[in-house]
Amino acid sequence: MAEKLSVNPNRMVLLKIKRRLSVARRGHKLLKDKFDELMKPFLATIKETGRIREEVETELEEAYKLFAIARVETSAVELDAALSQPKVSADVAVHRRNLVSLTVPEFELDLEGEFDCYGLASTPAMLDEALSRMREVLPRMVLLAQRENTIKMLAWEIEKTRRRVNALEYVLIPQLEETVRYITMKLDEFERANLNRLMKIKEMVGGGEI
C-alpha cells in the first residue's frame, strides 16, 4: 500500500489533495494517450526501417564487391587520381517534421552532377558500374539514416512518457488516494469523538434534560 503524504488532517487540506488527485488523474490519462499515440508511428517505422536496412546492406555489399574488383584492375595511384576531383555535390536539405509532440528532422538528398569525372581510358569499366550502384543506394542510405534517427527520438520520448505514466499510476495517484482516505478517516474519527464528548457532557449535566 502506498505511503500517505504527511499532511494535517483537516478539511482544507482534504480539498487541496482532492484537487491534486483529479489533476493527476487527468494528467495520467493525457500521458497515456500520448504514449499510445507515440507507439503507432514507432511500430510502423521500425518494421519498415528493418526492411530498408536489409536492402541497403545487400546493395552496398554488392557495390563494394564491384569496387574492390575495380581496385584490383587498376593501380592505386590511378584510382586515387580518378576519384580525387569529384564533380558530384551531395547536399542534404534538412526539414523539420512534427510527429506527435516531437520535431524530427527529414533529409532530402540533392545529388548534382555526374560522377564520371575521370578519364575512361585509364579506369576499368567496373568502376563505373560500382559507382552507379553506389549512387543508386545513396538515397536509400539517407532515408535509412532519417528513419533510424526518427526511431531513436521516438524511443527516447516513449521511454520518458512511460516513466511519467508509471510514476503517476503507481506512485503519485495511490499516494494521493491514500492521503484522502487517511484524512477522511481522521475527520470521521474527530466527528465521532466529538459526538461522544457531547453525549458525555449531556449525561453529566443532568439526565438528558437541558
Binding site: A63, Y64, F67, A68, R71, L79, D80, L83, P86, V88, S89, A90, D91, V92, A93, V94, L111, E112, G113, F115, C117, A130, L131, M134, R135, L138, V142
Partner: peptide
Amino acid sequence: MKMAILGDQTATEGFKALG
C-alpha cells in the same frame, strides 16, 4: 548540409566520388 563517410578505403573512395 554535407554528409561524411568514415571507413575503409573501398567504402570511402567510392562515396568520395559521389560528393
